[in-house]
Amino acid sequence: MFLSFISRQPVKNTTAKKPSPGTDPARPATAGEPLLEKSRLSCRHLDVFYGAKQALHDISIDFSGNQVTSLIGPSGCGKSTFLRCLNRMNETIDICRVSGEIKLDGEDINRPEVDVVLLRARVGMVFQKPNPFPKSIRENVAYGPRIHGLARHRDEIDMIVETSLTRAGLWDEVKDRLDEPGTGLSGGQQQRLCIARTIAVSPEVILMDEPCSALDPIATARIEDLIGELKENFTIIIVTHSMQQASRVSQRTAFFHLGHLVEVGSTEAVFTTPRHHLTEEYITGRFG
């Protein structure tokens, strides 16, 4: 009786802890080079569940600093879910459960003692739909630095507002109307305002969740140029539906399919010599 109780424990543990990639024959191991020797952000054996449904299966991937990594894959493959794990935004969804390890500069961000406010100040996020606050342009950018206490005086805040808007390529367009509502800008300007708002906090990593999907081609081109400039100072991870965009802006590409990380590699390698047949079929447009 007692022994049988003990013997049940390891069984439970194996269901909770996922085996490493390759041990489960039903699950394809990630092709390419998901792991790097030097990385800013690294995930190991990440599983995400929405209630009983598993959305991500055993994701292991590294991200290196000062480069753009794009996450591609068909709709519903879990790339946005994965992105939202990196700054613990999934915590806002009640039924979402995350297990596995995500390390930012060697520190596991999912440990309970890690402060989520601090984490999000280090890992900023730009969303799919431009979502400026219904406040003035100045307030939109100044809000982050203000709540984090990065600047106290009006002069300092004005400095941050100006540099952030300049880096986001928006300063010349809005410098004369900083007190007008941010929601009065065009879609592309709003998205650049949201980027300015994110970089105003000086994060280390910027997560972008399809930042151009609601924008026209010209606005998209501006944001893409901006991403190219921002990678000098930030680690950028971008989810995109457009493979052209992925090939234009990113140095590394990760392909997700049905909750599995199928292939990771340099953008050039993934697009020219994909190793996995799913990757090849997706980028040649046979499905997706």
Partner: peptide, 27 residues
């Protein structure tokens, strides 16, 4: 209140209380 406003505030590191009192409650 649209969830995008909550996400925007949480995304730049506002705490729950800050998000609610600075953005959600005024709306």
């Amino acid at each position: 209140v649209p969830p995008s406003i909550r996400e925007a505030a949480l995304g730049i590191g506002a705490s729950k209380v800050q998000t609610v009192f600075h953005h959600v409650l005024p709306l």
